[in-house]
Simulated scan of single mutants.
Amino acid sequence: MSNLIRRDPFNELLRGFFIRPVDFATSDDLEGPKMRVDIEEDAAAYRVHAELPGMKKEDIHVHIDGPVVSINAERKQEKEVKEGERVLRTERYFGTVSRSFQLGQDIDEGGASAKFNDGVLELTLPKKAPVQTRKLSID
Rank of each mutant, 00 (worst) to 15 (best):
M1L: 11
S2F: 12
S2D: 14
N3P: 01
I5D: 10
I5E: 13
I5A: 07
R6L: 11
R7T: 13
P9F: 09
P9G: 07
F10Q: 14
F10S: 13
F10H: 12
E12V: 05
E12G: 05
E12R: 01
R15P: 03
F17G: 01
I19R: 13
I19D: 14
I19S: 13
P21A: 05
V22I: 11
D23Y: 13
A25I: 09
T26I: 08
T26K: 09
D28C: 00
D29M: 12
L30C: 07
L30W: 03
E31D: 12
E31Q: 15
G32K: 09
G32A: 08
P33M: 00
K34P: 07
R36M: 10
I39C: 02
E40D: 15
E41G: 06
D42Y: 01
D42W: 00
A43D: 15
A43E: 15
A44T: 05
A45E: 12
A45V: 07
A45D: 05
A45I: 02
V48M: 00
A50G: 00
E51I: 01
E51Q: 08
L52Q: 00
P53Y: 00
M55P: 00
M55Y: 13
E58A: 12
E58V: 09
I60E: 11
I64G: 03
D65L: 04
G66D: 03
P67W: 01
V69E: 04
S70T: 13
S70A: 09
S70F: 00
I71P: 01
I71Y: 02
A73V: 06
A73H: 03
R75I: 02
R75S: 03
R75P: 02
K76N: 09
K76A: 10
K76S: 07
E78Q: 12
E78P: 01
K79M: 05
E80V: 08
E80M: 06
V81W: 01
V81E: 06
K82W: 04
R86C: 03
V87R: 03
L88A: 04
R89H: 08
R89S: 08
T90K: 14
G95R: 02
T96Q: 11
T96N: 09
V97G: 08
V97M: 10
S98P: 03
R99H: 06
S100W: 05
F101I: 08
L103A: 04
L103D: 05
L103W: 06
L103P: 05
G104L: 09
Q105C: 11
E109Q: 14
G110P: 01
G111D: 11
A112S: 14
A112W: 13
S113I: 12
S113M: 15
A114P: 04
A114H: 07
A114V: 04
K115I: 10
K115C: 08
F116C: 11
F116T: 07
N117I: 14
N117E: 15
D118E: 15
G119N: 13
V120I: 11
V120Q: 00
L123T: 03
P126L: 02
K127G: 13
K128W: 10
P130E: 15
V131A: 13
R134F: 12
R134V: 15
K135F: 11
I138K: 14
D139M: 11
